[in-house]
């Protein structure tokens, strides 16, 4: 296999990694808010359920969660799973896992807001939704951006865990080629790709943080 072919194969894998990355963020970032609100709910049942959910998501390996999501429907309920479920399982497992992490970040951000901001908003007549979306949320986003960036960078690397269910993303591809060629080179090349991927993500997040740096 020529170097060019290897790079081509890896690039195809990278595309899948990027897809996993983007779709996971698309689902987990908003889902995290729902979980965070559940975690802060006045209703003790909702609060307990979300608390248990978060602790399981954070307390067990993502790889194991991935296996459960992928094999669970068949092993538990005898549902026949098709080939296209593999990718869906990756997105589900990653999304519900990252939602738990994002939820905790959101929660700590929301709880760190001084009560004076809510009180000032109330005195000016803002309703609850206006207070949250106009006054609280923009400040929370600024506060949590560094932690969210950390998670997002971890996600880039975590996409490689999909090899556990043989999803053909970049890491799985690199491993296969490496084994077939008995060469370390494809793995090294994949490493470089991950590094560049992350550098781009970090750069993007820096831009976002810059956009929020007009105030303190």
């Amino acid at each position: 296999m020529s170097f060019g072919t290897i790079l081509f194969q890896l690039s195809k894998g990278l595309l899948v990694s990027v897809e996993i990355f983007v779709l996971t963020l698309v689902f987990s970032l908003p889902l995290g808010f729902i979980v965070a609100f559940g975690r802060m709910s006045k209703n003790p049942i909702i609060r307990t359920i979300t608390k248990v959910y978060i602790s399981i998501m954070r307390g067990t390996p993502l790889m194991l969660q991935l296996l459960v999501v992928y094999f669970g429907p068949n092993l538990l309920f005898g549902i026949r799973i098709g080939e296209n479920y593999r990718f869906i399982a990756v997105i589900i497992a990653f999304s519900i896992n990252y939602a738990a992490y994002f939820a905790e970040i959101y929660r700590s951000g929301i709880e760190s807001m001084p009560v004076g901001q809510y009180e000032a908003a109330k005195m000016l007549g803002y309703n609850k939704a206006q207070t949250f979306f106009l006054i609280i949320l923009p400040q929370v986003i600024k506060r949590i951006l560094p932690s969210v960036t950390n998670e997002i960078i971890t996600l880039v690397k975590d996409t490689s865990l999909s090899f556990a269910i043989a999803q053909a993303e970049m890491f799985t591809t690199a491993k296969q080629i490496s084994a077939a060629q008995t060469s370390i080179m494809p793995l090294m090349a994949a490493g470089v790709f991950y590094y560049i991927f992350n550098a781009i993500v970090a750069w993007g997040m820096e831009r976002v943080e810059k956009a929020f740096s007009y105030y303190r």
Binding site: G116, Q117, Y126
Partner: peptide
Amino acid sequence: RGIFGLVFQNFNLFPHYSVLKNITDSLIKV
């Protein structure tokens, strides 16, 4: 609530709004 206003000890201005917007935003939206 529209009858009274309150000035806080520690101001509680909205840090992400300019001075002008701190004043005008609720006039416009509320």
